[in-house]
């Protein structure tokens, strides 16, 4: 491959990366504003953009496409390890009901209740955008209905 051809390819990939970044940011802004709850479309679109960008950086900027099996093998062995890591970790933390509560909350085993811990920060969860979160919206609805029922771990699902 001649230098001129490679430089031309790099320029094309560079432009592609910039366009993909712009698309990703615009899609994220629109998605977070209009369809934040539809995680499949929001996250799916964003991850697709990220993986396309990652592919071009990895295979072209890092020249992996033009390397032999020794270099490729040094990196590709990590893919099954990543899958193994995710599979092993998910049943523990990802699906354990003891961990299944909101980001600004923690489970208190002494009282068997979930408490807010967003102290000391301008935590948007507690300041004006509660309606964006179905979990908190549900809490507010219960409070407005006069219910004294508190949240327990796992009740968000």
């Amino acid at each position: 491959m001649s230098d001129n051809h490679e430089t031309f390819s790099v320029f094309k990939i560079f432009i592609l990366l910039l366009i993909m970044t712009a698309i990703e940011v615009v899609y994220g802004e629109i998605g977070n504003r209009y369809f934040y709850e539809q995680k499949f479309w929001l996250w799916g679109g964003l991850l697709l953009c990220a993986f396309i960008k990652g592919y071009y950086i990895f295979f072209y900027f890092m020249h992996v496409k033009y390397e032999g099996m020794i270099v490729k093998g040094n990196v590709l062995f990590t893919v099954p390890l990543i899958i193994y890591f995710m599979i092993m970790l998910t049943p523990d933390t990802g699906t354990n009901p003891q961990f299944n509560y909101g980001v600004a909350q923690q489970f208190d085993p002494m009282t068997n209740e979930v408490e807010h811990i967003g102290h000391g920060s301008r935590n948007v969860v507690n300041h004006g955008v509660r309606h964006l979160y179905p979990y908190l919206r549900e809490q507010d609805a219960k409070a407005n209905a006069g219910s004294a029922e508190d949240t327990v771990p796992g009740s968000g699902h």
Partner: peptide
């Protein structure tokens, strides 16, 4: 991976655009 697992396990997560 840990971030993804923790986030999937949380019942709600703030919109990053608000923070």
């Amino acid at each position: 991976g840990t971030y993804i697992i923790l986030r999937m396990g949380a019942s709600e997560w703030p919109n990053p655009a608000h923070r």
